[in-house]
Design a protein around this nucleic acid. Sequence first.
DNA 1: GTCATGGTTCAACACTTGTTGAAGTATTGA
DNA 2: TCAATACTTCAACAAGTGTTGAACCATGAC
Lengths: 95, 95
Amino acid sequence: MTRRSRSAAAEHRASVFKALGEPTRLRIVDYLRSRTRDATGTEIAAHVGISLALLCHHTDELVECGLLTKRKEGQTSIWHLNGDRLAATVAHFVD
Amino acid sequence: MTRRSRSAAAEHRASVFKALGEPTRLRIVDYLRSRTRDATGTEIAAHVGISLALLCHHTDELVECGLLTKRKEGQTSIWHLNGDRLAATVAHFVD
DNA sequence: GTCATGGTTCAACACTTGTTGAAGTATTGA
DNA sequence: TCAATACTTCAACAAGTGTTGAACCATGAC
């Protein structure tokens, strides 16, 4: 691994931690982890206790860093937690 | 665990992730992890490539969330990474 | 078509954060 | 005592962030 790609990897790892460093977003991730199935926007918003507008803002960040993916079914958005990405990021700190 | 302490724990977990979510701080933590011994302020600042003033600012945050502890030997500050705290925080995401 | 539902985008705001350079403090050596 | 070292604190600034409410856009039911 080159110096450049190593630091790029560090930047990306930091972006995941940054996303997790916001209590509301951490609750979104925790909620998705606690379920076995993916969740709709309204489900998440209701569970976390925030508006859909705010949910959109936070899910944008979580998608940006690769922690969440979205698919649309009709008018409903369905969110999927990328567990591998999460595991890979924290794996750095596990011996 | 009560609802209150559970959310307090989540807040604290978020504060650790927030600290790790800044590339410069992540590099400080990575550097301390890569060493076997604790490091002085000048060592860290030199390795990470930042001023002592900026290092102070970032170490404050890392101490605040319990990731780092400091001891003084004369005029030198020596930083110790709290590996247990780090492991405990990310353990949540490891099955 | 009308209406409700579920989501997205926008503008605006207060607040926080990373960074810099300069000034200040404490310790050590000559 | 003088000077150097190793931080620490301060003030200031630009940039970014979380939150809100309103407006907007699709989709589905009737």
